[in-house]
Nucleic acid binder design. Structure first.
Lengths: 132, 132
DNA sequence: GTTGACCTTGACGCGAACGTAAACCTACAC
DNA sequence: GTGTAGGTTTACGTTCGCGTCAAGGTCAAC
């Protein structure tokens, strides 16, 4: 009943993934649940990481890329030079995310144009809009 | 020398893909180059589609999803009911794109927080910022 | 004690998205 | 002629991201 340590079943319900997926992510070193005997128990850290993993997937990153990026989220008790390095990589990642958002915004704008054009075609053929 | 019809080699240079990729996309009905004898020749339409395909990939869509979405970009000379259907699907796609951008924006904001935190850690350890 | 729910570790399978090698045509350059 | 620089098809190979058995451990409930 420990709310800090979730079983694999609980994880699967909440995040809508299969056990296979979580074990696969562990094998790929994306997650590192603790063990209670044989059983895996997922900590708060694992949950935070899984959330980021699934988000990363939605944005088109591979699991290996995600594994690298996850480290950027844990600027912790390392050597100063190591933290600096991580920080720099973080800046690059941030820039990449912003670039991606900008491209997405452009794509949205272009697509809206296409839709407007489609509206006109429909209007010219005598189709009324739903909102009228 | 026809600027409207590009060879596979030219396509590969400009879009930074391999011939295999273009032939694969043709097999999957994402592209439909015309033929001059045996040779493929890619039209303006193919170029526009390829651009969208590569963009779609960067946003994490599968080729099959992209194939469906490509149709939304060609609201042309179809039946009115067909155009209406396409238009509706287009609206949904637009909403999905916007949702994706919003999620990306949230992710960017969160990540910026992490970076700020990292900055403070560095500052507390006596590391000066590059811009000072 | 046995049933059932939940977990474990292999290990093979599979679709997606190409890579890669083999064998061949074709047209221009020398 | 003989390259050689492009293109072609056919077909098997590879990596990723899991799905899907198979076989078994564990523990509370009946």
């Amino acid at each position: 009943m420990n709310e800090e340590q979730w079983t694999i079943g609980r994880m699967c319900e909440v995040f809508e993934v299969t056990p296979r997926t979580l074990r696969f992510y562990e094998a790929k070193e994306l997650l590192s649940p603790v063990r209670e005997g044989q059983k895996r128990l997922f900590t708060r850290r694992d949950r935070a990481r899984l959330k980021l993993i699934l988000q990363g997937k939605r944005f088109g990153y591979s699991l290996e890329e995600i594994r690298q990026l996850l480290n950027l989220y844990y600027i912790g008790d390392q050597q100063v030079t190591q933290i600096s390095r991580t920080y720099e990589l973080g800046q690059k990642h941030l820039a990449a995310m912003i670039a991606k958002r900008d491209e997405l915004n452009d794509a949205i704008a272009e697509f809206q144009e296409k839709l407007k054009w489609g509206e006109q075609v429909l209007a010219s053929k005598g189709v009324k809009k739903a909102a009228e």
